[in-house]
């Protein structure tokens, strides 16, 4: 693996947000989101302030807004849930857009939508401006246990190798005319799953032996 590898969400740049130390960015994200989550529902102007702060950071990072908006699809299931809330919650009823809905459900749904959106956007901003290696170093500085940092490091490092292996298996299946359409095809997919596990585990063993032969004693050389 030559050269620095970006992960899927990283947007290369040299803005002040990109250059900020990763451990500060993680702490800032955590603090920001705790404040957002603790904001009582109904305090809508305050959500506007949160959004303004977040947008200011994003403008400063010079990551194109379209880049972030496209990646906000992970939130969609919860948008449905938030829209459902006014109809399933109990309590006094109120009129909204000509529909009779639960008042508390309406506020809870709006608050959930606001918080989840702010959360996804803030996490995207961190992911878009932070290289995985910097993030790992930042988490180590935040006193995350060294073993946990190592495990996360190996996961990040081999993520694309393993997902690529899965992709090659899919291409192999499809080039033989197989498309999974219904549960009768599960045994074949499950065999891919099993094969992927064996390959990943054996790769882990090989990596471990390679590390031992280079003098690994349980700590990563710095």
């Amino acid at each position: 693996m030559g050269g620095p590898h970006g992960h899927q969400l990283h947007f290369h740049g040299h803005s002040p947000v990109h250059r900020a130390p990763a451990h500060l960015k993680v702490l800032a994200l955590l603090a920001f989101m705790l404040v957002v989550v603790a904001t009582p529902r109904g305090w809508y102007p305050l959500y506007g302030v949160h959004l303004a702060v977040l947008l200011a950071v994003i403008v400063l990072s010079r990551v194109p807004p379209a880049y972030l908006v496209k990646r906000m699809v992970v939130e969609i299931p919860f948008v449905f849930f938030a829209i459902l809330l006014p109809f399933v919650a109990t309590g006094p009823r109120t009129e909204f857009l000509g529909l009779t809905v639960s008042e508390s459900g309406l506020h809870a749904g709006a608050a959930l939508l606001a918080k989840a959106t702010l959360g996804v956007l803030a996490s995207l901003a961190l992911a878009a401006t932070t290289e995985p290696q910097d993030l790992l170093a930042g988490l180590a500085r935040l006193r995350m246990p060294a073993l946990l940092v190592q495990i996360m490091g190996f996961m990040v490092r081999y993520l694309e190798v393993v997902t690529d292996e899965l992709r090659r298996m899919r291409i192999a299946r499809e080039s033989r005319g197989f498309t999974a359409r219904n549960p009768r095809h599960w045994p074949i997919l499950a065999r891919s799953f099993g094969a992927l596990f064996i390959r990943s585990f054996e790769r882990g063993e090989r990596v471990h032996l390679a590390m031992l032969s280079r003098g690994y004693t349980g700590k990563m050389p710095t």
Binding site: L147, Q150, I151, M152, G153, F154, M155, R157, Y158, L159, V161, V162, T163, E165, L166, A180, R181, N182, P183, H185, W186, L189, S192, F193, L196, F197, S200, F201, R203, G204, E205, V207, H208, M211, Y216, T217, G218
Partner: peptide, 26 residues
């Protein structure tokens, strides 16, 4: 033992990857 870091890391990558393996229902 001392295989923890590479093996747990690869298992984590494996779990992440398998969440991309979709099983069709109906």
């Amino acid at each position: 033992d001392d295989r923890t870091a590479p093996l747990a890391g690869l298992v984590a990558a494996f779990i992440f990857a398998t969440q991309m393996l979709n099983f069709p229902v109906a």
